[in-house]
């Protein structure tokens, strides 16, 4: 037990002293995951809104596929992106493998089904009379759709929170396509995995604490935002 306590104390010292390595890793983690969330939200939310509002043949099949992909294993995404970006792969010429861009790509793909799926849930959960009310008050099609989105905004924010949690906490894809290169593609989760493997718990602990704090901080901020849009 002794080494656990020592590890924890050293970890806190690393955080308090604003250790350069720790904060480099944390900042990269945030950069990668936040970019991935923004990208998947830009694509996934409009798609989810469209699917949620429209009726079309094959809609149920589409929703089933999206729901299945919500549980996509991170290593499968890692494998997929790796094969696409490896120098023998179709996108190999871009030279993106083992760069933050590759990690962003992988995480975007990973959370996209989550964003689309939860957006559909949010939109279809809105009382259908909201749209009719908007139309009867003179809204055009786009304005009426926006009214529905506004009514679903809590669920949409929850989708962002869930997607961010999945992105920042995943390790498989980041390890596979990022390569865990120190100072370049090493993020919180891959660093923890590496340090634990080496038996050097203090850095792992420090990063674990930071990871939890970052998650708590961002969720609090988003919930505050949610309360603000009421």
């Amino acid at each position: 037990m002794e080494y656990l306590w020592q590890g924890l104390i050293k970890a806190l010292k690393l955080i308090v002293s604003l250790d350069r390595e720790v904060f480099g890793i944390v900042l990269l983690s945030l950069r990668v995951s936040v970019t991935a969330i923004v990208l998947s939200a830009l694509v996934g939310m409009p798609l989810g809104v469209l699917v949620g509002l429209r009726r079309f043949p094959g809609k149920r099949l589409f929703v089933t596929i999206v729901n299945t992909l919500m549980a996509l294993p991170t290593v499968v995404v890692g494998l997929l992106v790796y094969t696409m970006l490896s120098h023998r792969g179709p996108l190999g010429v871009l030279g993106l493998l083992f760069t933050p861009a590759a990690m962003i790509t992988a995480q975007s793909i990973l959370v996209l089904p989550l964003v689309v799926g939860l957006t559909i849930v949010g939109i279809t959960g809105v009382d259908p009379t909201v749209r009719k009310t908007a139309v009867s008050l003179g809204a055009n099609e786009l304005q009426a759709a926006l009214a529905v989105v506004m009514e679903a905004r809590y669920v949409l924010l929850a989708a962002i929170i869930a997607a961010f949690g999945r992105a920042i906490a995943e390790v498989g894809a980041a390890m596979m396509v990022g390569g865990n290169i120190k100072g370049s593609t090493r993020v919180i989760t891959t660093a923890i995995a590496l340090e634990t493997g080496k038996g050097e718990f203090e850095l792992a602990f420090a990063l674990g604490i930071v990871l939890l704090s970052v998650a708590a901080l961002i969720n609090t901020a988003l919930y505050k935002l949610q309360a603000g849009v009421r």
Binding site: T129, T133, L137, A139, M150
Partner: peptide, 21 residues
């Protein structure tokens, strides 16, 4: 409508909706 939908926002924004669009 019989069971009018009140948008989840302030009274002002509800009443202003038709004017805003």
């Amino acid at each position: 409508m019989q069971r009018p939908v009140i948008f989840k926002t302030t009274v002002f924004k509800n009443v202003a909706y038709g004017l805003r669009v």
